[in-house]
Design a protein around this nucleic acid. Structure first.
Lengths: 270, 270
DNA sequence: CAGTTGTTTTCCATTGAGCGGCATTGTGCC
DNA sequence: GGCACAATGCCGCTCAATGGAAAACAACTG
């Protein structure tokens, strides 16, 4: 590649004309990790974050000194436990989980299947906790993983009770159900959401990978707005939505009360 | 307080002669949060991190843009869910928990009390997960919280199987049992640790706040070194260490196998 | 409602901390 | 040994980060 373009002179030591702020870069390093890449070599880290190797090394060193990253004997980086420690103080993460867990346990004992707790983060639902009975069917999602809003029980709850402007922005985009890859009709979804708001429960049936029913209900926070969604996921055959709905709603209310909600659970909107 | 010292001239706009690197400051902001301070105002954040208000605001802004911090309608900062999301990728946190949870569940069902999973972080044990049966006695520690190495079951395991140099550094310090505040004899602790290494189980009795017994066992990682400790905590009266020991060790072995340990659990050190 | 006090936000002149290309060293692999 | 690639060490040049001052805002008080 013979240089034909007016390449900016790369003097040794010349500061790059444009570089993201240090803090952003540091967090870009953290963001380079995901479920499929829980450990990265220096080179991988550099490539995935788009930061030159030498800078990556320097920054990663800082992060290691603090404990945000750890480095194994093989030289590979992983997310550090110290980061996990402070992150466990996130009110919408561990804080929520702490309040919800006992009630989720009750629900698990009754249904003997999966119990999910999720909150909205950006345009996804984020799975905060999952309880799965031993004899439960195959697990679906990972704690800390993201779920689509429009094709999961918890997601539908979070979407139905989100601000109108946000709902519209979601409805404006082309949506498909996964994994069947069936397109979602905006009009149908709109009706579904209205229905969910009306009776405070979302029921979602799904055929693949196996026939299942998810029944979800909203959890209200201290500000009386929807803070999270609770759901049970059971195989289609032994589903009894008539029983599951009230059970999930009851547990969700108990959690709401634990979070300090008042108006929202006391007086249902007329 | 009239200024008597030769104060360095503080010219407006003068860059401070000494300031920690940006990255360290950013993480100092995160470190300002703890179990008793899950939400902080700008002023509190500034005071607790030792960073001037204006710099705190600027940095906090960056952290918020990324999602490491969130700010409520009341203007108070909290740890953000995005941070929790990446932190959930920590192999020694969520990763370990994921493998251990089913086996911990078995143990809980048998003992009907508390089951603890902890790893070593610095000079403390860090509680990665806790399962507590409904009828279990009062809870002790918080997930994400720290436990002393020398006066908890899991702590003793982690200490007994740590590198010798680290053990010595701990033994060199004056130690007391909490909450009784009884000093620990280094010689006695040394004997205890040797015993723990010999039979692969730690048994700790404690009188306050209520009589309880903790039985702990080591969990080995893929590198065949002790990666974590597992324990059950039961009230003194219905304690049957003869049964608990094998149960905990069995579960710990199962988890070790799940983590990829070979030598350590296959051939016990002669 | 003006006065007081405390907190949050904006503004900006200054400078050292962060920058990345390059050179060197380390580590397999054939 | 020879090659390819990953990791680390080095260094002079800048502009991003800096914190005090001041303004804006909020909450009480008499």
């Amino acid at each position: 590649m013979t240089d034909g373009s007016p390449e900016p002179v790369r003097v040794r030591g010349r500061r790059p004309p444009q570089g993201d702020p240090v803090v952003d870069r540091a967090f870009a390093l953290l963001a380079a990790f995901d479920a499929g890449h829980r450990s990265l070599s220096l080179g991988e880290l550099s490539r995935r974050s788009g930061i030159p190797t030498s800078s990556t090394l320097r920054l990663a060193g800082r992060l290691m000194a603090w404990g945000a990253l750890e480095r194994g004997s093989d030289g590979r980086f992983t997310i550090g436990l110290r980061l996990w420690e402070v992150a466990s103080l996130a009110p919408r993460g561990q804080g929520l989980k702490q309040v919800a867990l006992p009630f989720m346990g009750d629900l698990e004992e009754v249904t003997r299947q999966h119990v999910l707790l999720a909150v909205r983060e950006g345009t996804d639902a984020l799975l905060v906790e999952r309880l799965s009975a031993h004899q439960a069917m195959d697990v679906l999602y990972r704690v800390g993983g993201r779920l689509p809003l429009h094709s999961t029980g918890v997601g539908l709850i979070l979407l139905a009770f989100a601000e109108t402007a946000f709902q519209e922005s979601v409805l404006d985009q082309p949506l498909v159900h996964l994994p069947e890859n069936v397109p979602v009709s905006p009009a149908a979804l709109r009706r579904t959401l209205a229905e969910i708001r009306r009776d405070g429960t979302a029921t979602l049936r799904r055929r693949a990978p196996q026939p299942l029913v998810s029944v979800a209900a909203p959890i209200f926070g201290a500000d009386d707005r929807v803070a999270a969604a609770l759901s049970v996921v059971v195989p289609q055959e032994n589903a009894e939505p008539r029983l599951l709905g009230p059970a999930v709603r009851t547990a969700a209310r108990a959690i709401s009360r634990g979070l300090g909600a008042r108006r929202a659970i006391g007086v249902p909107p007329a």
